[in-house]
Design a protein around this nucleic acid. Structure first.
Lengths: 258, 258
DNA sequence: CCATCTTTGTGCACGCGTTCACAAAGGCAT
DNA sequence: ATGCCTTTGTGAACGCGTGCACAAAGATGG
């Protein structure tokens, strides 16, 4: 029916939409919290609130996994934790390597969230010989020369890049050549990888810039509105308006493309 | 026509789609690199490649900002850098506070990417009295008791939360009450904020879980395919298949919902 | 055993984002 | 000046994701 002529089943993984996959960890976290409080069952409404999403969306998401709920009752917390964990592949062990042990790399190595869910830091790798052998988060730092050997010896398939931007692509290439097929990139660089390799990107600078855009828009809105609607969060707006020393020159021309 | 009854124009900011806004920083970064190499103009095709996107998408994105290109030539690099910077609000100064100076908070404080684009760390804030006054990234750590005073004295409207999950909502509430209207949240918590406050979330654990999902699927695909297509990235697959000690029990039942 | 009430699972419609494909626009050489 | 060649800007179609609204399913009480 809806399947029609399916050119690229690669995007849709096993029929689970990407957007749903991205929310499963959120549900899992909420469910884990409920599990720790020994809550036996939960309704889609409650769980959706806890996860910060719409309940219809949550139900539709779960429907892709199967019919794991009981009508009139809700979902069994423990069972759902198991199902989602299995779907996400968290029932197995995922060794990861962190490449680039600067401030950020060290912080991630120390981060507890790693081990909590099947992920295990197999090695810390840095290019600086001065770092080699040093202890970070109770683990010795390896030299990047041993990258291939470490990856293959530990069966690592997930790599985390926390190098400076300039080194990221080079490190990425070596990781991929060594067999890594999933990369979490913290460097401010667009990585190019062969098909079949997944890259996810975490970029502080980009996130801040997106926030700045909306912040600017909010300020402009309030300025333009003047005494219009209820002034939300008035303190911040007042201050921002007062601080703008470049005057109302920057953004007034509403370049509405006709 | 398609607009119909438009309840919430809040989502679309000044006509620029959210997806486009999220890509502007990417373009800006690529353009800045070109600018440093003194490249005068760039075509949509080149720039798109550098930014890792489709050229048609890039042109459509730019079309929301106005007609800044010259047909037959391309875009003027310097001019475009200026226009995007202005659109993103980067021509003004954005003081930010970082709350929670643990490993991650300290790493972010040291991160150079902050200052590079109009963002300035105005204060580091922590709840631990033992941290107060300590120097991190050449800056004294303030106590959380002074949070409101710091925010108002510096006109801060962007806050970064790097506390443990348990403290995040509480810190968030205080930030919002003090006038913060944009929050970048690194804590593994769903923050609830009043309308008009933007929250963006960076979650290492979620990113890893998403990668694990795809990784698992890739492994399953290769196992199922057997000797089918060209075995991409064969080393990793072989190893993964060999390492799976739980046998083919976990994921074979294709629960294809009829 | 039946009625009622709760909650799931999903068909459907809508809107956003992406991509294609092409006409309009402008530079450049002759 | 004119024609060609490159590249932009965008109309239109398509597909994905979201949310509504409701019927089906099952629990619960009498």
């Amino acid at each position: 029916m809806a399947t029609g002529r399916n050119h690229r089943p690669a995007t849709r993984s096993r029929g689970i939409p990407e957007a749903t996959v991205a929310r499963l960890p959120l549900y899992l976290r909420a469910l884990t919290a409920l599990s720790e409080r020994s809550v036996p069952t939960v309704s889609s409404e409650e769980l959706a609130t806890a996860a910060g999403v719409n309940s219809a969306k949550l139900r539709k998401d779960f429907s892709y996994l199967g019919s794991y709920g009981t009508r009139g009752v809700g979902y069994d917390v423990e069972y759902l934790v198991y199902q989602i964990s299995r779907e996400l592949g968290l029932t197995q062990d995922w060794p990861v390597v962190i490449v680039g042990i600067g401030n950020l790399g060290a912080a991630l190595a120390n981060y507890g969230g790693f081990a909590s869910r099947g992920f295990r830091v197999a090695a810390l790798i840095d290019a600086d010989p001065a770092m080699t052998g040093r202890q970070v988060a109770g683990m010795g730092v390896s030299h990047v020369d041993d990258l291939e050997q470490i990856i293959q010896a530990n069966g690592v398939s997930i790599g985390v890049i926390t190098t400076p931007g300039g080194a990221a692509q080079q490190v990425c290439d070596r990781l991929v050549a060594a067999g890594i097929t999933s990369i979490l990139n913290f460097a401010p660089t667009v990585l190019s990888v062969p098909e079949g390799v997944d890259v996810r990107k975490v970029d502080l600078s980009i996130e801040l810039q997106i926030l700045a855009f909306h912040e600017q828009r909010k300020a402009a809105d309030e300025l333009a509105a003047g005494r219009n609607g209820t002034p939300r969060v008035p303190a911040a707006v007042e201050r921002r308006a007062g601080r703008a020393e470049d005057g109302p020159e920057g953004d007034i021309p509403a370049v509405m493309p006709a």
